[in-house]
Design a protein around this nucleic acid. Structure first.
Lengths: 234, 234
DNA sequence: TAGTGGTCTAGACCACAAA
DNA sequence: TTGTGGTCTAGACCACTAG
């Protein structure tokens, strides 16, 4: 542990403990001192070191078990937080002028794969919305949504002409759970022209299925322009 | 708030508060009761409701300001945690038998883009390692790494013949910071044969630049087999 | 069974920002 | 200025689990 100062401050304690881990003085698998010992060392109560330790545990740096004590996580599986933003806001935040163009909307029989993903039997009538998002007037993303009508009551044509469905959903049908998949595909022939690209050009496809409690709301496929990157970090 | 039971339990309080938000009874922007009021309502101390509120705030559901009070977050930008796993472990966890084949290793002059990304001037000599990861004997991922020699002292040929560099790095040169980018590309002609695919087939490319404190460790490019998906959720 | 972390209390003082 | 959240204390009891 650090030799000198007394910190009555859980963030400082957290920093000090993390430094022990990242510098390698405490190695993966090592058992670290008990809460009481650390509290004594830092000159504070158990609650305060506990706060620091808990924080490091949820961040994945430590494993804690009652009676077993606290150990340095053997496999620092770091989690990189991936944003799930509002589409127009994300474009604006990147310093571009956002644009929105509705391509298609209406009630249609869902393809079997969509129906299955949403836990619907047969080929139910779902709300289908396709729209193009622009950044500085250039094609940026294509949104392809299938929504369960019962879950989006109140969503009408006026909600998708000028304003993305996205933004209506946020305040009117907030999701509680979602499954997200990211893959690389060749741009489908029917979408490529809207993107101003050749069919088959590599495109990032993000598929998101969302639920409210246990009830499926809808499926979103988001096709990104070739070259577009998702960025994150830890 | 819920009418009935008294919970002296911060997780139950968290659930109850979250239910208020997700059901829409508390809408984005709404001010919610003060800690003292909630403590009174739930029949516990301020610390306990504080714990629940803090948890919801870090999860992004609430905004808290001194004197300003606590409000429901206007823009629930949810974060989907993306794993940064050990490659062989990820394959094993997916229920496949992992394999590893070294393609190439040695000291080479780094291409300008790599040198620049790592903050190195000119065309420094960097350690270059390429390897193929297999899942059930089928090509799964290609790892393309450039490492700063000074940061990986002790990493020698014996460390990459049979065992992925990946696993050596984890315990010997842990990263403290990383920048991650995900994009869709056409598989380069030199890598496609190793993947058993045609050049240009859509491939998910994950690029990761990692640092230890402020010093760059290396750059990793991870090419995924066509059809391979990254999965996450919230 | 005994030792460890997990939680809670009933106070207190402080830091920040809104009025 | 004053109200709100942020933090800390000095205890206490409980829940889990390793030995």
């Amino acid at each position: 542990m650090s030799k000198d100062i007394i910190y009555p401050d859980w963030k400082a304690i957290r920093r000090d403990l993390l430094e022990h881990i990242q510098s390698g003085r405490w190695k993966p698998g090592d058992k670290i001192p008990r809460e009481v010992e650390l509290a004594d060392h830092y000159g504070c109560t158990r609650s305060t070191v506990g706060r620091a330790l808990r924080d490091l545990a949820v961040a994945g740096f430590l494993d804690r078990k009652r009676k077993g004590g606290t150990t340095v996580a053997p496999n620092p599986t770091r989690k990189a937080p991936l944003d799930v933003p509002i589409l127009r806001e994300a474009i604006r935040a990147a310093g571009h002028v956002p644009g929105y163009r509705l391509l298609h909307a209406g009630l249609y029989s869902a393809p079997p794969d969509v129906a299955k993903a949403l836990g619907q039997s047969g080929t139910p009538e779902l709300l289908h919305v396709q729209a193009l998002y622009l950044a500085d007037a250039l094609p940026h993303q294509i949104e392809d949504r299938w929504l369960v009508p019962a879950m989006v009551r109140g969503l009408g044509p006026d909600h998708w002409q000028e304003q993305p469905v996205d933004e209506w959903l946020l305040s009117n049908a907030p999701l509680t759970k979602a499954r997200i998949e990211i893959e690389a595909i060749g741009l489908p022939a029917d979408l490529a022209p809207h993107m101003g690209q050749m069919p088959g050009s590599p495109s990032l496809l993000v598929t998101r299925i969302s639920w409210k409690q246990a009830r499926p709301i809808g499926l979103l496929r988001l096709y990104h322009a070739t070259g577009h990157r998702l960025k994150t970090g830890i």
